[in-house]
Amino acid sequence: MVDAAPWWAVVTAPVLLAAFALCAIGYDAVLAAREAARPIRMTTPARPLLEVPRLLVSQPRRLPAPDALLWRTGVITVPVAAVLSTAVIPFGHVVVADLPVGVVWFNAMEVLTWAGLWMAGWGPNAVFSLVGGYRYVAQGLAYELPLMFALMTPAIRAQSLRVGDIAAAQSQVWFAVWMPVAFVVYLAGVLAFSFLGPFSYPVGQDIAGGLLGEASGVDRLLLSAGRWLLLAAGSAMAVPLFLGGGAGPVLPAWTWSAIKTLAVLALLVWVRRRLPVIRADRYVELAWVVLIPLTVLQALVPALVVLGGGR
C-alpha cells in the first residue's frame, strides 16, 4: 500500500510541508482581511510574508543575562520537530520513513515542542516570556492525554502503529465517520500543539505576546514558522489517521492526500479565527473531566469491534 520514498524525499517532504504552511498563512491573511473589511486582492495572501525579510534583516533584541544556549536550542527545536514528525506521514503512496511505530514517532516529535517552547520561554530571562513557556506546559498537560487517546483509537482499529496500515484499514469507511470524538479531539490537539486560535494562550496579548514577546529577528521567524509548520504537519497526519489517506476516486493518490490536507488546514484556520482564547486552567478541567472519559469510551469502540472479530 505505502512504499518507501526515494532518497530525495528527505528534501521534498519539508518543502511540501512548508508549502502547506504557506497555504494556511495565506488563507489566514484572507480571512483577516475579510474580518477587517479590507479589500481582498491577489497580494492579500502574501502580505504576512513581508515579515520574513523584515525579520531576517532586523537587529536582534539584546537582553541582560539570557540563557542563549537553551534559548537557541528551544527556538530551533520547534520547526525541526514539525519537520521530523512528517517523516512517517504518507503522501499518496509514498512515505519518507515507514516506521512500524509511526504513530508513536509522530506523538514523540509533537511532544518535543514542550521542551522547545519551555526553553524558548526560559531563554530570554524575561518574565512574560517565561510565563508564556509555563503556560504552554500547562496547556500541554491538558491537551496531551486526550490527544494520545485520539491517536490510539485508529491504531487500535487498524491493529498497527504503522501509519500506512492505518490508512489502508479505512478502505470501507473513514475513521472520521465512526470515530468522530477521536477526530474532533485530535483536531483540537493539533491547534493546541501549534498554539493557534483558542490555544494561543502561551502567546496571549495579556502577557505582551508571551513566548513571542522577547523573540526578535530569526528567533521570532523560526518560532512563528514552527507554529504553522506544526499546524500543517498535524493536518497532514489527520489524513491517514482519520480521512482514508490517499484513497479516492479518479484522481491519483497524492492529489487526494493534498486535497484532504488542505481541507483540514482550511477548517483549522477558520476555527482559529472563530473561537476565543481559552485559559489553560479552564481547558485542563474540560480536558480531564470531559474529554479523557469521552476519548477512553471512543477507544473502547474499535477495541470491542476488533475483539468481536470485525476485521
Binding site: 511505530v101 508513536v104 514523540a108 511532544v111 514542550w114 521542551a115 500541554g140 496531551e144
Partner: peptide, 13 residues
C-alpha cells in the same frame, strides 16, 4: 520512541 516521548514530558515537568 516511547522512552523519548515520556522523557521529554517528564523532564519538562
Amino acid at each position: 520512541v516511547v522512552i523519548i516521548l515520556m522523557m521529554v514530558m517528564e523532564m519538562v515537568v
